[in-house]
Design a protein around this nucleic acid. Sequence first.
DNA 1: CTAATTTATTTACCTAGCTAAATAAATTAT
DNA 2: ATAATTTATTTAGCTAGGTAAATAAATTAG
Lengths: 132, 132
Amino acid sequence: MNPLFHALLQKSRYITNCLNETLKQHNLYSSQWTILFCLHVHGPMTLTQIWKYLNVEAPSITRAVARLETLGWVQRVDGPDKREKIVTLSAMAKEKLPAIEKTILAFEEEMIGSMTIEEQQQFMNLLQKMKG
Amino acid sequence: MNPLFHALLQKSRYITNCLNETLKQHNLYSSQWTILFCLHVHGPMTLTQIWKYLNVEAPSITRAVARLETLGWVQRVDGPDKREKIVTLSAMAKEKLPAIEKTILAFEEEMIGSMTIEEQQQFMNLLQKMKG
DNA sequence: CTAATTTATTTACCTAGCTAAATAAATTAT
DNA sequence: ATAATTTATTTAGCTAGGTAAATAAATTAG
């Protein structure tokens, strides 16, 4: 395998693992965090809006949101279109989000702090040169 | 979440999905291919050598190699140290590997063909600037 | 030489993605 | 207005990673 792919996939796995480690203190997994963050930024969303935004398949989001609901982070309510479920952050989530965001910012700083803004931009540009 | 992480994780998932799609014609999954490739390059290896090389945890390799054995791609034999199992490619695997490698090379060319060698090198350098 | 420790693998179980197919509500075509 | 199609979500089951703990063989300490 091309070393570029190997390196990219490894780093991706490494980042996810580190992120999970960091989020342990808040009793969250990385995929749960991405959904909470999504709702934090966009406000209430349907499941479809979430999975289209995060670019994953619907069943992954169904499962993760169901888990977040049993843990008390979100509520699911029927929308005016009764096919869709609207997901909103719970009071508990809104209360805890600022502290979690702080943790995440520190994590990101530690992870890519040694790259300049130009290098980060360059990295994104090169990523986009790959197919897809 | 920092867009750099988002982009990197997305691309990583996209590559894996494309690779799986490409490997369907050989009835293989990407993780199975990485193990076969590993054995192709290094010759017979113990499970520990494989998971240390691929930088994943042991149980993932135990499972994947067991599956590869039932599918006839590899054999597991006891080593002189009876704790370890040595994994070798089957005759079927050796016969089929060249065609699979060809498929993979075409896939990689399609995936990163629009990047120059310098850009690829630069990308790797930037990846390594991230922590880990 | 026996006891304690280390090492290699496995088992059980978790998150996290995927596809395919089922269900139910809404929309479109006739 | 009914039938056919589309859309939103869910269910079932797969690969693929992770951790924690069990087992068995090898090694080290006493």
